[in-house]
């Protein structure tokens, strides 16, 4: 076999490919459908939250923060209930992270407030002495990309059947509806914030990145 195969690059390559692909086939295929079922009560992100998730991704928060609580007492004591597969059913892409340079954030919405995040993102070590997290003042001046967040949500709805606009689920509607809704949500977040320029921006119909990010972080429960 050795002799025959290795003088025939084509068959060699086919054999090689089969050997390599075998594991993926067995491992990944069987559980695909099962793992994508949402748990009861899991809702898709609103447009504002999605815009916040895009900020989270843009600044690679996932490089240092995980969103996966493992089933150990030391983790559930620290971060809350361990993570369930179905909770991620609308998480596209997943942002579990692979390194905890900072703490886990999967349920950060349960124990941190808008106010806390506002101060912390501006200057982490003022809130947590000794913190090695960078400051993110640019999030207070950059505007979040709500339009892309809408396209993101609409892609999920049209292509993957994510239940927007269903009963008890977030509304999406047209771009104008979604924009108005996102602004309304942003106003609720801004009401709890202190930074005057952010408040002014929201009052003028803009959505600074920090507002979207806080909306996203608050939704992680």
């Amino acid at each position: 076999m050795f002799h025959w195969l290795e003088q025939r690059p084509f068959f060699f390559a086919v054999m090689l490919f089969l050997t390599v692909a075998f594991a993926g086939f067995i491992e990944i295929v069987p559980d695909f459908a099962k793992a994508s079922q949402p748990t009861v009560g899991t809702k898709p992100f609103t447009v504002l939250e999605l815009a916040g998730k895009q900020v989270y991704i843009k600044d690679s928060c996932n490089a240092c923060h995980s969103q996966l609580i493992r089933p150990f007492k030391s983790e559930t004591d620290r971060y809350g209930m361990y993570s369930l597969s179905g909770e991620y059913a609308y998480d596209r892409p997943f942002v579990w992270g692979s390194k905890r340079t900072g703490p886990d954030l999967h349920r950060v919405g349960n124990y941190r407030t808008t106010d806390w995040h506002e101060n912390h993102m501006m200057n982490p070590s003022a809130v947590v002495p000794g913190s090695i997290m960078p400051k993110y003042p640019h999030m207070f001046t950059n505007n979040a990309d709500v339009a892309t967040a809408y396209a993101n949500a609409n892609t999920q709805k049209s292509l993957f059947g994510v239940p927007y606009d269903k009963e008890g689920m977030p509304a999406l509607g047209s771009w104008e509806d979604a924009k108005a809704q996102a602004l309304e949500d942003a106003k609720k977040v801004a009401a709890d914030m202190k930074n005057q320029s952010v408040k002014d921006a929201v009052a003028n119909g803009q959505v600074p990145e920090i507002v979207a990010l806080i909306a996203y972080l608050n939704s992680l429960k």
Binding site: T148, Y150, A151, N154, T155, S158, L159, W175, A178, K179
Partner: peptide
């Protein structure tokens, strides 16, 4: 996602 933007400037 731009193909499903539905008119939004994404």
């Amino acid at each position: 996602t731009m193909f499903w933007a539905n008119g939004a400037p994404s």
